[in-house]
Design a protein around this nucleic acid. Structure first.
Length: 504
RNA sequence: CGGGGCGUGGCGCAGCCCGGUUAGCGCACCUGCUUUGGGAGCAGGGGGUCGCAGGUUCGAAUCCUGCCGCCCCGACCA
């Protein structure tokens, strides 16, 4: 089982226990990320090292999403990390949005320091045009699309790229907000507005399906208010999830770009009638932030809790033995079990380490969130059974070795479903309606969570609420019912409730 | 950018006020023996330019000056 070995042998801290979520949620999160061996801080401020176990989860996310993108007709490509400074400024709202957090490359050479200590930037080697490290790739991609698109026959253009991007953030947190992060960004071009909007919505649905079916994380699909919209978009759609501490997390966004980038980069096509028109664009992305969402949706005071569909190790087997002979006997005995589990695609790891005792291993695999644990000792072998423990509830039972594979498949499926149901129940219990500003503030202070309230649709009101309560409009839910009401702040008429929360 | 905190073996810390043996503790690591159904015990062992640069002093982890870095909490953002 060499794949699992890399996940377990490199950890450099192993303290007993985590901070309690109820006492210090931020500390719990931070410690969990480190102790479960997902990531650590890099020497560069705001950057992180994603460790093998954390990256293993990300890889599963990537693979699943990538398949979903392919199924919906997209292909992958790769565009450069560096963007000429002039490109960024071609779309007015876009620069405006990103200018404050760009890393800029100004030189291309170092030289030995005159004092003999280390190296310095060679002042002779200044770039003629400075380069921006991409905070997102719309500009460089649309500059290429200009050459790729001439006719309606070139459309739609459905491209995705997996990449790293850099946004120089003031305040960072592992996975949730880092200066450099990994993501995918889809960039599509279409002949009609309707088709582009359809694409925007389709990819939003893909994200929602991924979040719910794989991450077991319920999300609310919605549209952003003007204030929260992506810089350069006409409309920004999003999926919003609720974390265990009652704060909202934007887990993915899909933008309808209108013709904004087409106009900025002069991307025109000839339609069937031979008339020239600007193409319609979309862009959509999810990032390693999903890791943070995953952690904060399911995990508990004992550690990580992973949904089976994204767990790098789905089943761990811990032998309980006296002496080397017994260990060997168990090892032989479980071979058959392991083979069968593998054959149906279950990722299984046999923890044969003789340097740690069972109790230690139990605690460690719980910390790492492995969904199902099997323990096998002499007694079990004699009775042809194993002890089965599920991570999400902590429940243990014994199961016969005969038919174990089917039993485990069912169990993994059950864990997956239960996690989703539990998270959904939590969200429902923490989604409340407020019909006055007083009530709104009270809910926010007492419970946090999502609040559905009427809003007059103006940025002024939105900003005032944000200023006074720290809560923001997470989205206007797509499935919001038509309901006559009055804005909780101004009393002006409103046709539907919007979703508020304090957010990450 | 404001406020707070911290830099001492891999990790977490003590020591610093009040300068003075060989810089200490827990975890981790290595060796051996006994252990193994919920985070093992004993014995032995290795590992440190005390963030960096100056200064004061017979003597600096400790006092002074300057610098650097990181983390946490706020204002902005996925």
């Amino acid at each position: 089982m060499p794949f699992a070995k890399a996940y377990i042998c490199k950890r450099n801290t192993m303290s007993k226990g985590l901070p309690k979520r109820s006492e210090d949620y931020a500390a719990w999160y931070q410690e969990l990320v480190k102790q479960a061996d997902l990531a650590e801080h890099a020497p560069v401020k705001g950057c992180m090292i994603i460790k093998p176990y954390g990256f293993g989860i990300w890889e599963k996310m990537q693979r699943t999403l990538d398949d979903m993108f392919k199924e919906t007709g997209h292909v992958n490509a790769y565009f450069p990390l560096f963007i000429p400074k002039s490109y960024l400024s071609k779309e007015a709202a876009h620069v405006e949005g990103f200018a404050k957090e760009c890393a800029v490359v100004t030189h291309y050479r170092l030289k030995n320091s005159p004092d003999g200590k280390g190296v310095i930037v060679d002042p002779e080697a200044r770039l003629e045009e400075e380069l921006i490290v991409r905070p997102t790739s719309e500009t460089i991609i649309w500059s290429a699309y200009r050459n790729w698109i001439q006719s309606y026959r070139d459309l739609p253009l459905l491209i995705n790229q997996w990449a790293n991007v850099v946004r120089w953030e003031m305040r960072t947190r592992l996975f949730l907000r880092t200066a450099e992060f990994l993501w995918q960004e889809g960039h599509t071009a279409h002949a009609t507005k309707e088709e582009a909007i359809e694409e925007t919505r389709r990819m939003l649905d893909v994200y929602a399906r991924f979040a719910e079916e794989y991450m077991a994380m319920p999300v609310i699909k919605g549209v952003k208010s003007e204030n929260e919209r992506f810089a350069g978009a006409v409309d920004t759609y999003c999926i919003e999830a609720l974390m265990q501490d009652g704060k909202a997390l934007q887990a993915g966004t899909s933008h309808f770009l209108g013709q904004n980038f087409a106009k900025a980069f002069d991307v025109k096509f000839a339609n069937k009638e031979g008339e020239l028109d600007y193409v319609w664009g979309t862009s959509w992305g999810v990032s390693t932030r999903l890791m943070g969402a995953l952690i904060m949706t399911h995990s508990d005071d004992k550690g990580l809790v992973l949904p089976p569909r994204l767990a790098p190790i789905q089943v761990v087997i811990v032998p309980i033995y006296h002496g080397d002979d017994e260990l060997e006997a168990i090892q032989t005995y479980v071979q058959g079990i392991i083979e069968k589990l593998k054959r149906v695609g279950i990722k299984v790891h046999f923890d044969a380490r003789d340097t740690h005792r069972p109790g230690f291993k139990f605690a460690e695999w719980e910390l790492k969130g492995v969904p199902v644990r099997l323990a096998i000792g002499k007694r079990d072998m004699e009775n042809n059974q194993v002890e089965v423990a599920r991570r999400d509830t902590g429940e243990k039972h014994t199961a016969p070795v005969d038919g174990l594979t089917e039993h485990i498949l069912d169990l993994l499926d059950d864990v997956q479903q239960s996690l989703f149901k539990r998270a959904l129940a939590f969200r429902e219990a923490n989604t409340r309606k407020a019909d006055s500003y007083e009530e709104f503030k009270e809910i926010l202070e007492k419970h946090g969570g999502f609040i559905l309230a009427h809003w007059d649709g103006t940025t002024e009101t939105e900003l005032r609420i944000k200023e006074e309560t720290k809560a923001t409009i997470r989205c206007i839910p797509l499935d919001a019912e038509e309901e006559e009401g009055k804005c909780i702040v101004t009393g002006k008429p409103s046709k539907r409730r919007v979703l508020f929360a304090k957010a990450y």
